[in-house]
Design a protein around this nucleic acid. Structure first.
Lengths: 384, 384
DNA sequence: TCAAGATGCTAATGCGAATTATCAGCGGCA
DNA sequence: TGCCGCTGATAATTCGCATTAGCATCTTGA
């Protein structure tokens, strides 16, 4: 079944079938209503549908959004951390009438999937959503350089150009926790997380050579928010690394240094500390306050009602799709214009609440930070 | 970047570039080694990759597998019931070097997504995996009729022809539970599930008119296994519907009828019964045994260690992909042969353990039932 | 009555690759 | 010399659809 077949059936030309199919009714394209009806009838009766592949080849657009994840898409080990992002992405795609292409074919090299490889299939999609704790800088740079439309879920430092993203406002959310802690009387706070990289207000792009992998932006942002808030409040901020130490050792160190509240980069580490503390007969908000800086990335027991903030993961996914389609539309299509396909009419476009500042221009912003939801919880109280 | 560009750069024709790219070395296609090298160099230095779309148009194959779900793909309400299937599907696709296309663009009509609709995008993929408790018969029939390569995750009755599927062996798993119950002394067993449809050994295709929707195969299969096992053991099998009754009413009915063990079609209903029973001071294995016939489909408390069986969801997903690729390869491609694309070489094909009987022919089976894993649990004991 | 516009549709072309038929050059052999 | 066979590469075609220039035919208006 091709347009040619339909054309023969109805005694018109293939071009006419295409025009009718796409509901073209411009002034320079005229089809008699009865002809149109005849063709439509034939289309309906045969159940013909245009071959999306051929369509894409000719029209340069697909209504397919790619999704690339560095980790497996449906992971077993991350406690469904990625799941909410996908929910949001799916919602976004659905409301826009797009299909989602998961790049499961990307081969794994050096323990992670690679976007670019021989037989790269990126171009199958109109654009691409990137998911993962830390994205490869070089690949990111190449995407930017090639002008491939893409969006990262999660803020990313520039990579040879601004990287479009929809991220969570970790600095603000972390600062808010700090402020809450200070408000109830804490004066010695610890930031407990991976590594102990120097963190400045600016993205730390391998100025010092890229030998040591930088902390993922999501971590660096939290720490930055921590430092700023601590400085602003004039209290003591301590940095505690988690690697290579048992929860018990970590707890010892915290107590030894006089820390009264620990801000945990990773929820699961918070659980571990809490559990060790309990074993020692310590009581959690009383002897040591703990706050988690986000949802668990690794599976963690949920018996403790942590003081924390929640990452708006679902919304991030859905807004990422918004931004992406914006980018795609900005990219010149067939002749620098909007694609005309009738089926491609956007349905249910929402007014993506862009918070990144004023609506400075007609153009929608490509870098968005969303607020995190503060959770009261019961693990933060006045220090003894 | 097109093959044409590469061709100009190296002073050869587009055809030559294509031949080199695809590593063609047949006897009727000869390229001088040095020419080949020159072209390959150019390809590498420019980072050129063939446009998958154009490739598909010409070669008629994609390495894209479609995934269609009747419910939202990443649902919030099903307690991640579908998640393991997707994990398996992703694994399968990855090992085969295929991408996954989620048909999120399928519009919803009458409360469910439809496969067939104007502007159908099924053909984007080489084949399609179907996911969902109950698939639409008509759509299934149409898929069969059109010869579209597809596989259902979960057994399906014929629909105008055999439906390829990878399902769980519910009859056997349910029968095993019955046997375990009988072995410890139960004589009056209840099957508690939706509806109360007559169930025969054969698929009940609307002989009686399709007015009343048939039970989904997954339910019918369990019930069939139940009836058969009960009959074989010579004990009493009772049918209890769950709809329109509170767990309390259901419990009353079970006890009134002298049931000593309840086999719960749906895990969550088992939880509900157990909790009501406890509230009344009944003890669960002692006063009433309960077994769940599969993993929870709806979110359910997991505090009870149910006697049950587990659906091999992940494996089902991954085997479905296996079956699907088998079907796709069976379907004649360009000229009834195997596609030649160099990139399309299958990697990591496994010996899909087909249990559906002997290897009767070269052709791999398209209807597979996998064993469920029996879980001992603590909710089945001898009756008082 | 005739140019000027509408109207309705089609031929032709291109998208980027795969594939096939064909062609030019070159030894070797009779 | 002329024919054959072999090598290496290319022109041409195809896939199914979108798009545009343009060709008839039919109305108008003056």
């Amino acid at each position: 079944m091709t347009q040619q077949d339909i054309a023969r059936m109805t005694g018109v030309s293939q071009a006419t079938v295409s025009l009718v199919l796409n509901g073209r009714a411009d002034s320079d394209v005229r089809i008699a209503p009865e002809t149109r009806a005849r063709v439509l009838d034939a289309i309906r009766s045969t159940g013909y549908v245009a071959d999306p592949i051929a369509r894409r080849l000719a029209a340069r657009r697909n209504r397919i959004l790619g999704v690339f994840t560095y980790e497996p898409m449906f992971p077993a080990g991350t406690g469904d951390f990625y799941h909410p992002f996908l929910v949001g992405i799916e919602e976004g795609a659905e409301s826009l009438g797009c299909d989602l292409l998961l790049f499961t074919s990307a081969p794994v090299a050096d323990g992670r999937r690679r976007i670019f490889h021989e037989d790269n299939r990126l171009r199958l999609a109109d654009g691409c959503v990137l998911l993962g704790r830390s994205l490869d800088r070089d690949e990111l740079a190449r995407l930017v350089a090639e002008g491939q439309p893409f969006v990262s879920v999660g803020r990313r430092d520039d990579a040879g150009g601004p990287v479009p993203y929809v991220g969570a406002d970790y600095p603000a959310a972390t600062a808010a926790i700090v402020e809450r802690a200070v408000a109830v009387g804490h004066r010695t706070l610890a930031y407990v997380g991976q590594g102990d990289h120097p963190v400045g207000p600016a993205p730390q792009t391998g100025l010092d050579g890229q030998d040591r992998p930088a902390a993922p932006e999501s971590h660096a942002d939290r720490e930055r928010g921590f430092r700023a808030a601590v400085a602003a409040a004039g209290v003591t901020g301590i940095r505690e690394p988690v690697e290579d130490r048992s929860p018990a050792e970590l707890l010892d160190s915290l107590l030894a240094r006089g820390v009264t509240v620990a801000l945990m980069e990773e929820y699961a580490d918070g659980s571990a500390i809490a559990s060790v503390a309990r074993e020692r007969g310590l009581e959690i908000p009383r002897d040591l306050s703990i706050a988690a800086l986000g949802d668990p990335t690794r599976p963690a027991p949920s018996d403790v009602d942590f003081t924390m903030f929640r990452i708006p993961r679902r919304q991030m996914g859905w807004q990422a799709v918004e931004v992406l389609t914006g980018l795609i539309e900005g990219t010149p299509g067939p002749e620098g214009g909007e694609p005309r396909s009738a089926g491609a009419q956007r349905r249910g476009r929402s007014e993506a609440a862009a918070r990144d500042g004023s609506e400075r221009s007609r153009q929608s912003p490509t870098q968005i930070l969303l607020d995190c939801e503060q959770v009261e919880g019961t693990t933060l109280a006045a220090p003894r």
